[in-house]
Design a protein around this nucleic acid. Structure first.
Length: 172
DNA sequence: ACATGGATCGCCT
DNA sequence: GGCGATCCATGTA
């Protein structure tokens, strides 16, 4: 069993979000985004990579959170605080490659009744001690202005933190 | 039918 | 900072 801690995500909406696959309504590819929360939406990117999302809103409302970076451990995350060995999976393509996620995982329940290879659970880390940064999403041709990318502070190896905006208004 | 281009990455200069 | 790899959903005819 592999354990991973999510470090970086991006939020995508539906008809209100021109950067979302669901912008123009359901298609065979993005149908899962219109389903219930807690299911995986996996798609092929640039013909090369797999990208992994978790659906977040109820049936009929398209939404998903793209997982962009994670840290994987051979132990549960709280144990890993002592065993500092971890592997950084930075970038959505690297993340799916490192976890072995492919198109065959698309549409799986990964929360309530996870039957597949992926399941999520509440973090055992002290969430109160974690600082979350926010920025524009990366690599878009539409909807670039939204500040819907979230990442843990203190991980410089994450995707370039350009256009960065944090809670401190003094930062540029 | 066919053309297009993207929620990317790694390697090149 | 630029480019090639490589697939397929989508738009247009």
């Amino acid at each position: 069993m592999v354990h991973a801690r999510i470090l970086e995500t991006e939020a995508y909406g539906g008809g209100d979000d021109p950067a979302s696959h669901a912008f123009r309504g359901p298609t065979p590819r993005c149908a899962v985004m219109f389903g219930p929360a807690g299911f995986l939406y996996v798609y092929r990117s640039y013909g090369v990579h797999w990208c992994m999302n978790v659906v977040t809103e109820s049936t009929g409302t398209a939404s998903a959170v793209l997982l962009r970076a994670a840290e994987i451990y051979s132990l549960p995350v709280d144990g890993a605080a002592r065993d500092t060995k971890s592997l950084l999976l930075s970038g959505p393509g690297n993340l799916t490659r490192g976890l072995g996620i492919t198109g065959t995982d698309n549409g799986q329940d990964c929360c309530e009744e996870s039957t597949g290879r992926v399941s999520f659970q509440e973090s055992r880390v002290d969430v109160g001690a974690v600082r979350v940064g926010c920025s524009k999403r990366i690599g878009l041709s539409r909807g670039q202005e939204r500040l819907s990318r979230y990442f843990l502070e203190g991980y410089p190896a994450l995707a370039r933190n350009r256009s960065r905006v944090t809670k401190k208004s003094t930062e540029s």
